[in-house]
Amino acid sequence: MTRIKQNLVALNTLVLKEYHRIVRIWVQTLVPPAITMSLYFVIFGNLIGSRIGQMDGFGYMQYIAPGLIMMSVITNSYGNVVSSFFGAKFARHIEEMLVSPMPESLILIGHVAGGVVRGLLVGLLVTLIALFFTDLTPVHPWITISVVLLTAVVFALAGFINAVFARKFDDISIIPTFVLTPLTYLGGVFYSISLLPEFWQKVSMANPILYMVNAFRFGILGVSDIPLGRAYLIIFAFIIGLYTLALTLLKRGTGTRE
């Protein structure tokens, strides 16, 4: 009983610490995505989008808005955990957690929660910006909320694993640059895959981000390139797989203990 209470205090401490970190360095954590996404809305949505016409029966701006929100959630939940946990490893204050009786699972969950908080904060910010340009009234609010939340969890976990393996600062930008960004751009943020030749449609189906973006778009607009059930299945499979891997690494001490 007291053990559970102590664990709750420890988890709360870690989550609050992560939250304070996000707010303290808001110029690095919240402002850049807001600026980038505003540019996307102005350039792709407004200037170019007006020439593109309809996509799946929606104005281009309205079509890409859910995709851009998801893109910022993905990048920021990943980015928060990878830089916070790697930073703690690098400056060694991760030892504050490692010497304490806080179980590994809570160290993981606390960091993931921090990533989710940042992902959702930025997602909310981008949504507010999007509302200046277009109307977004979710058709299926619960699907919208659950998909964005679960997706944030997936990428927070992935960011954690990246940080575990990272040895130098370069290592925390390699995966985002070479894996995450391409997969996101090709994950149906800007277009419906029905525009692609059949072969490339098949290839796109191997991209997990496609499912998340489309499930989110379904929540808001009611249209999707993929079956919703499969999207949830994939998201849960990733959460379980990544959580198990992250926890095993942490327990084994990979990247954290000599």
Binding site: K5, Q6, N7, V9, A10, T13, R24, H93, M102
Partner: peptide, 21 residues
């Protein structure tokens, strides 16, 4: 092994939190 950007008091209070205090 301090978080150099954290405040002195907060470092100590946070550590206590990890111990469930």
């Amino acid at each position: 092994n301090l978080n150099l950007f954290e405040k002195v008091q907060s470092i100590v209070v946070t550590q206590a939190g990890y111990y469930g205090i």
